[in-house]
């Protein structure tokens, strides 16, 4: 795995999560800034998918391919679906739901790392 990208994804997602929690705490709705950040994260996840698949194809080590690819593909669904679901709630709880979606990304990256080095 390409460590700088992984760390950037984890950092951006956590920052977005903190921002979403602040929005929820201040009784604010989701805004375009946070959606923009998550759009960048999504592009990064797409790059992670491409890099991950290429590295998986090239490695000699015994990495569990189906699980690794599953997490890579699954990670792409979380933010778009989470954002759509969260946007339909015009209250602080929409921001709260989006904060949870953000938290999923670092967890997925951690799982990917564990599968990769195992």
């Amino acid at each position: 795995m390409f460590a700088p990208l992984t760390w950037a994804l984890v950092g951006l997602s956590l920052a977005a999560m903190v921002y979403a929690i602040v929005l929820a705490a201040r009784n604010k709705q989701i805004n375009w800034s946070i959606l923009g950040v998550l759009g960048v994260v999504e592009v990064g996840l797409l790059a992670q998918l491409v890099i991950g698949i290429v590295q998986l194809a090239g490695t000699d080590r015994d990495v569990s391919g189906p699980f690794f690819a599953g997490y890579l593909i699954g990670s792409l669904l979380v933010l778009p679906l989470g954002a759509l679901w969260a946007l339909a709630e015009r209250s602080r709880w929409g921001a709260g739901a989006l904060a949870f979606a953000c938290l999923v990304i670092p967890v997925v990256e951690q799982r990917l790392h564990v599968i990769w080095v195992a």
Binding site: F67, W93, G96
Partner: peptide, 29 residues
């Protein structure tokens, strides 16, 4: 599905996605 339920449904959704993918891979491979 409203208020705090918005978060609850999303948590359930992530577990549904994860559990489905996991079970699918386990059974297939």
């Amino acid at each position: 599905k409203r208020g705090p339920g918005r978060i609850l449904v999303l948590v359930y959704g992530v577990f549904a996605l994860a559990a489905t993918a996991r079970a699918g891979v386990q059974i297939a491979t």
